[in-house]
Simulated scan of single mutants.
Amino acid sequence: MVDHPERITEHFEAAWNAHDMVAFGALFHPDATFVNRFAMYWRGIDQIVAGHRFIHETIYSDSVLRVDPADIDWVGEDAAILHFWTRLTAGAAHPAGPHVADTLILAIATRRDGDWRVQAAENVTLADPTTGKDILRAS
């Protein structure tokens, strides 16, 4: 159970790094949506978990994710917009080999029955707009 939206990022990082898709899925409402960094659109927790389970069993099985604290904009007592940066370090399991990618996640978190979860999220890769080449932000 997440008691405040700012804690979602801590749980997101912990679930990713443990490759624990049960814990990862618990961060989302059952009817949530997720757009990954390659524009794959998943509706519902089953699709979100299945999409992430696949990559955690394959290309991201040895990945590590660092998640920065969220910048939060409150929409009301039970809704907040979160923007948070991630740094993905992919390992040898990735077809491109070990590399690093930065992404920015936009998430809408809502509170239902006292529990904060993600209702919608979109993940975008930081890239040079003139070349499309991934870039890393200063950190």
Rank of each mutant, 00 (worst) to 15 (best):
L126V: 13
Y60T: 11
V118Q: 01
V67K: 08
Y60D: 14
A109F: 11
L106D: 03
G44N: 06
T125F: 14
H83R: 01
F38N: 06
A23L: 00
R112N: 08
D115E: 07
D20T: 08
G97H: 03
Y60M: 14
D78G: 08
D31I: 11
P69H: 12
E13Y: 08
I81N: 11
A90W: 03
D78W: 08
R137S: 12
V67Y: 10
A107Y: 01
R43F: 08
R117Q: 15
D128P: 06
G76M: 05
M1H: 11
W42N: 15
G114S: 02
P129A: 14
N17T: 07
A15G: 04
N123S: 14
D113Q: 10
A18N: 04
R137G: 08
F54T: 15
A70Q: 04
V124G: 10
R111Q: 02
E10H: 07
G51K: 04
T58V: 03
E6A: 13
D68A: 14
S63F: 07
V67C: 14
A138I: 10
Y41C: 13
A93T: 12
F12L: 15
V2L: 03
T9R: 02
V100S: 00
A70E: 08
A26R: 09
T33L: 04
I59C: 12
P69R: 10
W42G: 13
W16Q: 01
L136S: 00
E122P: 06
W16L: 03
F34C: 07
A14M: 12
A127Q: 15
V35D: 01
A101G: 02
A18S: 14
D62W: 05
A92Y: 03
V118S: 03
L27Q: 05
A90E: 06
E57L: 09
P30F: 00
R117L: 12
E57H: 09
V118F: 00
A120V: 01
D115M: 02
R66D: 13
P129S: 15
I108S: 01
I108R: 00
V100A: 03
D68Q: 13
N17H: 10
F34A: 06
E77S: 13
A90F: 06
L82F: 04
A70S: 11
I81A: 10
H56S: 09
V2N: 04
A23W: 03
R112Y: 04
D46H: 11
I45V: 12
T86M: 01
V35A: 00
G132V: 09
V100L: 02
A107S: 06
L82I: 08
D68L: 12
D128F: 05
M1A: 10
W42M: 15
E57Y: 04
L65N: 00
T86G: 05
A18L: 11
F54R: 13
T33V: 02
H11V: 03
V67D: 06
G114T: 01
Q47M: 04
D78N: 02
T125C: 07
P95Y: 13
R53D: 10
P98W: 00
D68W: 08
G51A: 10
H11D: 07
